[in-house]
């Protein structure tokens, strides 16, 4: 028995890596979806988009890169589908250079699933501008100064839905998806907080959540932090708009959630095992 505990104490971490791989990949391959219980914060985020009158202008900055895509893409997709379902006008932009490709994906989804959405009238891709949070500060006072043209180089003067956009205050809601700084925190600090007419909801990685909770609810309506709330959001969306559920990859957060579920229980097991090993081996060390 001692040998067993000693071998566990010196366990090669690659065994843990293998266990993690199995815990994540097997549920992913099975595609099993577990039931979700919707939390109030997710409901608030959902209502923020849902209760806006149809055709409201929504600014959707996508500030993340491919590395965080696994965690953030499902929520970005959910926000997009929800906004399109409500016929909101969507303004894409990013302050991350890698965000351009993320917007392209959203535009592709929009073209495929909502062919009635017309570029320039229902959605526009303003693309990337360098300057980190400086971009946010600038567009609060003068958006056309920085965005003279869209991502394709079309002057904003020729884009119908940009005609009455002078600054960020023309957007009643900002829906930001971000993987770090500059991101949701800066959008809250520089865009939503100083202007009472602007509300903000966001999606971010689970690890960023702890630093963003202090802004809720006074400065931000709520956020989707990680896969679990994203799965809850999908559930709410499917309940209200059942036609979305039939679309391919529309329930990715729920599929990923099953993997996360198993991985969490595996982690709990690993932590308990680590402690058992410590108690067993330290006891013997004391005796010796």
């Amino acid at each position: 028995m001692d040998k067993f505990w000693n071998s566990l104490a010196d366990l090669d971490r690659r065994w843990l890596f293998a266990l993690t791989f199995l815990a994540i990949s097997i549920p992913l391959l099975t595609g099993i979806v577990l039931p979700q219980k919707v939390t109030p914060m997710v409901e608030n985020v959902f209502n923020a988009i849902d209760e806006l009158p149809s055709g409201t202008k929504i600014l959707m900055p996508l500030d993340y890169d491919p590395s965080a895509e696994g965690e953030l893409q499902p929520m970005a997709d959910a926000f997009l589908r929800h906004a399109a379902q409500k016929n909101h006008k969507i303004y894409f932009m990013t302050i991350w250079p890698t965000g351009v490709a993320m917007i392209q994906r959203q535009v592709a989804t929009l073209k495929k699933e909502y062919p009635e959405y017309v570029y320039g009238e229902d959605y526009v891709n303003l693309g990337y501008r360098p300057g980190y949070e400086g971009v946010i500060k600038l567009i609060t006072s003068d958006l056309p100064k920085l965005y003279g043209a869209d991502q394709q180089g079309t002057p904003v003067a020729k884009i119908p839905m940009m005609a009455d956009i002078d600054n960020i205050k023309q957007f009643p809601l900002i829906v930001n998806v971000s993987a770090g700084d500059p991101g949701l925190k800066q959008w809250v600090q520089y865009a939503a907080t100083p202007f009472d007419s602007i509300e903000i909801v966001g999606g971010t990685t689970g690890v960023q959540a702890s630093t963003l909770y202090p802004y809720i609810p006074n400065q931000m309506i709520g956020m989707i932090a990680g896969i679990k709330p994203a799965a809850e959001y999908e559930k709410l969306m499917f309940e209200k708009y059942p036609e979305i559920e039939k679309r391919p990859n529309s329930n990715m957060a729920n599929v990923f959630m099953t993997s996360q579920e198993v991985a969490h229980f595996m982690l709990i097991g690993i932590i308990i095992l680590g402690n058992l090993v410590m108690w067993q081996t330290s006891g013997r060390r004391d005796q010796s």
Partner: peptide, 13 residues
Amino acid sequence: AFYISSAAFRAFR
């Protein structure tokens, strides 16, 4: 994800 599992095994004592 893999590093989290190894850190959890080692650090959460």
